[in-house]
Amino acid sequence: MNLHLKIWRQKDNQTAGKLVAYDLQGLNPHMSFLEMLDTLNEKLIVNGEDPVEFDHDCREGICGQCGVMINGTAHGPLKHTTTCQLHLRSFNDNDTIVIEPFRSSAFPVKKDLKVDRSAFDRIISLGGFVSINTGQAPDATVIPISHELAEEAFDSAACIGCGACVATCKNGSAALFTSAKITHMAILPQGKEERNHRVLSMVKQMDAESFGHCSNTEACEVECPQGISVLNIARMNFEYNRALIFKKK
């Protein structure tokens, strides 16, 4: 099949970018989207042009490193699918595909389709954990956790940190990402002890990273590769309100 690509090219964070058109012929529909970009880069390199920089690593949908806007939707047309798991069979012959980086003021573009998502790490570093040192753990069965609770915690913990929620949010809000971790930790007895401190400090960092407000449009859940529920955001609000009411001093 043949495709017409329009890819965002940007030299670095200081330079303005623009869409550049490329045509690819004779592609196999079973090719993955990123393999299509590999193919394009192969051509560019041989022609002495700069290849398109894009983020990717595991290519099996779990590391969360890949992710681009494909025709204006995060990770492309399929629901609950990362860019690396998208294949050309989801497109038609001679389609025009616009490829842009994940955008938000908290995700500055590094080059072409690569963006800086280290804001996520900083949010986690301020509370997205259980404060336990290596070697302190009691036996794993001391606290029973019901099957339902464990599954619920897993649903929140499944986040891969790709940033599609932020990219697809009209406000560039990181509410889904942050709330998924807060919820994961708030559900489990191990995480409950420091729930107040956690939610307050993670939200503070989230705000410091220039993410926008959540306005509950719920687009994030639709585009999330892991289908993380927006109810996590409600849970974060609950935890936050609760912490504000019950915090001492």
């Binding site: 806007m69 306005s215 719920e218 639709v222």
Partner: peptide, 29 residues
């Protein structure tokens, strides 16, 4: 205040189909 901040933080795309994932009235409060 919220709308102004959100306009600043939200991404701006050349090709934008993000609307498919949410209701128009939720985006245009």
């Amino acid at each position: 205040v919220i709308t102004i901040k959100n306009k600043k933080t939200g991404g701006d795309y050349q090709s934008d189909q993000r609307g498919r994932a949410s209701k128009w009235y939720s985006r245009n409060m």
